[in-house]
């Protein structure tokens, strides 16, 4: 009985402190710690993304971390995020569907989900092929600029939509979407700010 009563506080606090992967959150997500509290893992944003958006969102699995399981992540291998320069711009189905405020409204020009990380060793252009697919699909002016047939990435301009990752023809992909530089809502005494 005593074991039973201690089980939840002990196991719960232990599991909540296990390390987890950093994932790319949907647009308008609050700070990670608050996000993990507010998100009920209901999956409604993922549903909204697949029915009204392109379906880039998926629930995290156990491999992303026990505390992450069920929370939404942007997976550009499924589809790019259309929140900026795409079909979701200005309407954000994921944000509008979130019932708990873990995702909050964000203006299109403020969206930055993260940035892409480039592995030159896998890049077709670096390996001698002729490929600038990433630069062609990138909707952000000046985020990917070709130089001598090789793409140059400017992570400060990148909005993290993942179009280049989705389109990259290399196998394995030469690009990974990372949360580096992401813009999140911060919780303050005066409510939310960015």
């Amino acid at each position: 009985m005593v074991l039973g009563l201690l089980f939840i506080p002990l196991a719960g606090s232990f599991l909540s402190m296990l390390p987890s992967r950093r994932v790319v959150r949907p647009p308008g997500a609050v700070d990670e710690k608050l996000f993990l509290e507010l998100c009920t893992r209901c999956g409604i944003c993922v549903d909204a993304c697949s029915s009204e958006g392109r379906g880039t969102l998926e629930p995290c699995g156990i491999l992303d971390g026990v505390s992450m399981m069920g929370t939404p992540k942007v997976n550009p291998l499924r589809a790019p995020c259309e929140a900026r320069y795409g079909i979701c711009e200005g309407r954000l189905p994921c944000v509008k569907s979130c019932p708990t405020g873990a995702l909050r409204w964000i203006e299109p020009e403020e969206i930055k989900l993260g940035s892409v990380s480039w592995s030159p060793g896998r890049c077709i252009a670096v390996l001698g092929g002729e490929c600038l697919v990433c630069a062609e699909v990138c909707p952000v002016p000046g985020a990917i600029t070709p130089r001598n047939g090789i793409p140059v990435f400017h992570s400060n301009r990148c909005v993290g939509c993942g179009r280049c990752v989705y389109a990259c023809p290399a196998d394995p992909k030469a690009l990974i979407l990372m949360p580096e530089g992401e813009r999140r809502h911060h919780w303050g005494r005066a409510g939310f700010s960015r």
């Binding site: 939840i8 719960g12 606090s13 509290e37 009920t40 893992r41 999956g43 629930p59 069920g70």
Partner: peptide
Amino acid sequence: FPIFCLICPVGIVSRIIASALT
């Protein structure tokens, strides 16, 4: 942090179904 949600058997079923649907 909502610690019980990590262990909640009902929530785990819910999450597994949500993942299967996507």
